[in-house]
């Protein structure tokens, strides 16, 4: 009896499907193994993902991934997308193109809905698959015979807050890597390189020296007695802030939705407050949220509020890898340097 049980215990792992990390990083041209013309890229866990041919039916789980694809001229390959909300901040001609993509779900679609499109590739700008309940995990992608590509973040987006030094993000490498990776997989490296070059040029144009104001990133209207949600250093938001010439007031934590104590905020005294709007957990959206933050008594004593330096950006521009990150960067840089 015991022997039978222990045999089962040992057998348990064998029967569970292997699923690698999500694809990522720099594309590596196929050298060996994957056959002629095959493209091999690394996933977020550093494992090889091989493409014998360019994918034909792509599901983008979120709008960011679709926005990136569209800019690479790959609109026709997208058979459906989830979470189209980022489209609202996009501009012509991309906005019109994006509008032609069938929307599978307002949020991240569940496995079955994705499978229903029979994709050969599933793309997300988030750093992992299977985050939201019911959304496809890597095992699900394997089941539906689709490959997966994700927008990898340093530390896999999984690191605990204690080690910001290793996960701090100070430039838009994840965005550029994501674009290059898609370019490699779809055989449009030239377009990808051109897009990256353009974006890099825009990035260089805004980079400025001089005084670096202390900037507090706020994601919702602070409520008395509760910690204030802010973005730590392992985020695209932090990278954009750094590139724009600001100093993240909470660069010493890593998390995307870190908690800052109101006392600590007063002590560190931000010179600028940067409100990231449109997060799903914030009840108030857009400019209304910015107004609320401006009038919030918890922040009233900060230099930022006293001097009226409360700026904003939508999460659709500055939270996840996307070509629109540069729009967010340019606007923030303009805001920061307008007064100086």
């Amino acid at each position: 009896m015991m022997r039978r049980l222990s045999t089962l215990l040992i057998a348990l792992p064998l029967a569970l499907t292997a699923c690698g990390g999500a694809p990522s990083a720099t594309p590596v041209p196929a050298a060996t193994g994957a056959g002629a013309g095959a493209v091999v890229v690394k996933d977020c866990a550093g494992q090889d993902v091989s493409f014998a041919a360019a994918p034909e039916r792509v599901v983008t789980l979120d709008g960011y991934a679709a926005q990136t694809m569209v800019r690479l001229g790959l609109t026709a390959k997208i058979v459906g997308t989830g979470f189209p909300a980022p489209f609202t901040v996009d501009t012509s001609p991309y906005k019109e193109e994006l509008a032609t993509i069938p929307v599978l779900a307002e949020r991240i679609p569940v496995t079955e809905v994705v499978a229903g499109q029979r994709p050969d590739l599933v793309v997300t700008s988030f750093s992992t698959f299977g985050g939201p309940v019911g959304s496809p995990k890597e095992a699900d992608l394997a089941t539906m015979n689709a490959k997966g590509l994700a927008g990898c973040m340093p530390g896999g987006g999984m690191a605990m807050g204690e080690t910001p030094s290793t996960s701090a993000l100070t430039d838009l490498t994840p965005t550029y890597d994501f674009i290059r990776k898609l370019g490699a997989v779809f055989g449009v490296r030239d377009r990808a390189e051109k897009l990256v070059t353009d974006l890099r040029a825009r990035q260089s144009a805004v980079t400025s020296d001089g005084a670096r104001p202390r900037v507090m990133i706020v994601q919702d209207d602070p409520v008395a007695g509760q910690p204030i949600k802010t973005s730590g250093s392992a985020t695209i938001t932090h990278a954009i802030l750094t590139l724009a010439g600001g100093e993240n007031l909470f660069g010493d934590v890593g998390s995307m939705h870190a908690d800052a104590s109101p006392e600590e905020v007063v002590k560190r005294d931000p010179q600028v407050i940067w409100v990231i709007t449109d997060y799903s957990f914030a009840k108030i959206k857009g400019q209304e949220l910015v107004e609320k933050v401006r009038q919030n008594p918890l922040l009233a004593e900060t230099t930022a509020v006293k001097e009226g330096k409360v700026f904003s950006a939508s999460q659709y521009l500055v939270a996840f890898p996307s070509p629109l990150n540069l729009d967010g960067l340019e606007k923030l840089a303009a805001d920061l340097h307008a007064g100086s």
């Binding site: 530390g155 896999g156 890593g254």
Partner: peptide, 12 residues
């Protein structure tokens, strides 16, 4: 849960 950085880890 409260210490973790990533929202996807939180969801998991």
């Amino acid at each position: 849960l409260s210490r973790t950085d990533s929202s996807s880890a939180q969801q998991q």
